[in-house]
Structures are given as structure tokens and as C-alpha cells.
Design a protein around this nucleic acid. Structure first.
Lengths: 187, 187
DNA sequence: TTCATTTTTTGATTTAGGTCAAATGCCTCC
DNA sequence: GGAGGCATTTGACCTAAATCAAAAAATGAA
């Protein structure tokens, strides 16, 4: 399922909008460990992952904090930088070779202008981002390390399988020693 | 400073938009401890506080979790419910007698339709909400209870002065016993 | 003013998860 | 295929903040 069909599942788009969008989309490939977005650059694209796994992280003091992990059929962008077109403190990189579709900020706004019904899709994507963040806050604040791990294992097992442990731990808000122990105790 | 001037500081609005907006705004008064939004209701308004202090909280298991605290010249709404027009799990209530301006969801969208330049203001307000949430996540995840308290004391001292300790503690993600001890140790 | 209720403080104890350090496993690339 | 470098596991110990419990202070209604 590509970006266009994903948007179709969110809201109906006219055939004209679909065709315009297909034309506006770009595709990119990234190698394993390649940087999709460097720190301090403005994020120009909203990405949609066709193949591979990518993640967003930022520097905090001396260590790196993983903010999100995305796999096939997930949107991926430095939300804040893309929306505000300000330099990004978030870095986007790839766990695996990735192939992605992408729409630029300018083209996205052009789409809104040309096809006002597409605003709804844009809004729904942003809402999704906001909800994810809210859920993460609640999870970090009120759930134990073990509960967080089990929730991720249940909801997104492919992350547990395909991402390195240290990054998963950081994403879950714990030390990798802790995650290692949790994982050990359960079998 | 009312809602209209606040928006003017975010982005320019045409005199027509300003006049239309002034007409579209409603004003409400709420008594201390009155509920502005009940759990399960759709949040119909984006509020702007002219006088008083309000807060948003939700039920989690047996206790209440404070999500935000707003004072004069802050926007206040159940973000998720307002944006998606879904029933709200968040409850809005008042610490003090409040007088607020409010724009309804329908009128806000009408404004976007009539005055496309106002979209920018809307987007900026939502970005602000998103950033606040991100900051809170970082603060809960990486700062100690004491650091969180000191940051709030520095950035928004009026909250420390005017809101009850239990709610502040909940907002800061700690138990009120902890907040009480932190407060005691510093003088 | 007094009594009742709520809010805040103080004290003793427990615990989840962090920290530091070392050992083991496992890629990958000359 | 062996050496060096990562990633992961394991162990011992420590600490911030939660929990449980009770006292003290503040608030407000009659």
C-alpha cells in the first residue's frame, strides 16, 4: 500500500487530486544507517515508508534519545521542523535500507490550495502524530518499564525484532540494561 | 489583551477578519470549581482566558491527572476533542472564577474559509500546543522532580501561587508529598 | 467562634530502575 | 578465519521518589 492508498483510507480524494498527488510525490532510497535528515536542517518532506525501518532521535546532553520508530506504511518526518519549517533538532536515520515516498512542504500546501478536501487528510495525519505523543507521555509517566515493553511487543512486534535493543530502550524511556533484564525474565 | 490582539501578535489579520472575528467570539463566565467541559462531551470551543485560572485533567484508574494549567492570556481547550470533534476524556475546570472568550469549532472553520490568511494563526496555536506537549514529555522523562518544580517556578510562578499543591504536583508528574518536601527544603 | 473538612506537611519504609563495571556474544572486514 | 569492535547480558550496589500513615495547618460554613 502506497501513500496515496493510505490517504484514501483516511478520507476520500477526488480522482483529480489522486492524479495530481501521484505526480507530486517523489521517491527516495536510503542505505542502512544513512541520515535522512541532519540536525539543524529544515525538514522539507513528509515521508511515507514503503520498505525498511527508520527512526528519529535527538541529542540530549551526551546521549541520544529515540523519539519514534517507523516501519512500512508509517508516515515519518521531523514533525515540528516540517510543520514550522524551522531547523530540526531531530535527526532521522535508517535501521535498514529504506525506500520511501515523500511530498515536499511546498507541494503539500499546493495540494491544500488546489484540492481543499485534502486538508482533512492533512489534519488527520497531524492528529495521529499528536495522539502518539500523548500516549507516549502517559505511558512514560504511569506505566512501569515492563508494561511499556509488553505494550510495544503486543502492538508493534516488528520493532522489537528489527530495531537494535539500545534504540528500543531509549524509545521506551529506559536504560538498555533494564530492557535486557526485562526481556530475560520473561521466558 | 484579548484573543484578537493575541492573534495579532502571532500573525497579521486584515481589518475585515478582525471585525468578523470580534463578532464571532462569545464570552462566558465560570465560577470557581465549575466544570467548563464534562467528561465524554465534545469540546465545542477554543477558549481564551481573560481572567482567572483553569485546568484540564483526566481520570486514570482511581486518581485524577492534571494535564495543563492555564491563566490569563492562555488558550485553553481539550485539544484532542476540539480538533477531532470526538468525545473528550479530558475535563476542564476552574481553580478561580473565570471569564473567557471563546470561538466555536464551526466558527473557527468558517473563519478559515472566509479569511485564508487566518489559517496561519490556527496553525501556530496548534504548534504551540504540540511543543508544550513535547516539552512536558522531555521534562518528565529526563528531569528530576526538583528540576521540574524549579522550571515551573521560574517560567510560570503564578501557577505555583494560585493553584492548589495537589494539582500542581500532578501536573508536574509527582506525588504531592514529594512536591511538599521539595518546597520545604529550599528556604 | 467553633467544628468539620480539606489541604499540606512530616516521618518511616520500600522499591523500580539507574549506575558502574565486567563478561560474553556476534558481526564484519581485511 | 581470526582480530577488533559493537551489541547485549549479567552482577553488585545506590538513589530518587513512591507508599503508607499520621499530624498539623488552613479553610469555610453554621
Amino acid at each position: 500500500m502506497g501513500l496515496v492508498s493510505k490517504i484514501q483510507t483516511l478520507t476520500g480524494l477526488s480522482p483529480e487530486a489522486v492524479s495530481w498527488l501521484n505526480n507530486a510525490l517523489e521517491t527516495f532510497s536510503f542505505k542502512k544507517n544513512e541520515l535522512v535528515l541532519k540536525e539543524g536542517k529544515v525538514c522539507q518532506y513528509l515521508y511515507y515508508i514503503n520498505k525498511g525501518m527508520a527512526y528519529g532521535y535527538y541529542h540530549l546532553q551526551d546521549h541520544e534519545v529515540c523519539n519514534w520508530i517507523a516501519r512500512e506504511n508509517d508516515f515519518a518526518t521531523s514533525y515540528y521542523s516540517f510543520i514550522s519549517q524551522q531547523p530540526s533538532y531531530e535527526i532521522i536515520a535508517c535501521f535498514e535500507d529504506c525506500s520511501v515516498q515523500a511530498i515536499s512542504y511546498a507541494q503539500l500546501n499546493e495540494m491544500y490550495r488546489l484540492f481543499p478536501e485534502s486538508e482533512r487528510a492533512g489534519r488527520l495525519i497531524l492528529e495521529e502524530y499528536y495522539s502518539r505523543l500523548e500516549e507516549r507521555l502517559i505511558s512514560i509517566q504511569f506505566k512501569s518499564a515492563k508494561e511499556r515493553y509488553l505494550t510495544l511487543l503486543k502492538n508493534r512486534p516488528e520493532i522489537i525484532q528489527r530495531a537494535p535493543l539500545g534504540r528500543i530502550a531509549s524509545y521506551l524511556g529506559m536504560k538498555q540494561e533494564t530492557l535486557s533484564r526485562i526481556r530475560a525474565e520473561k521466558e
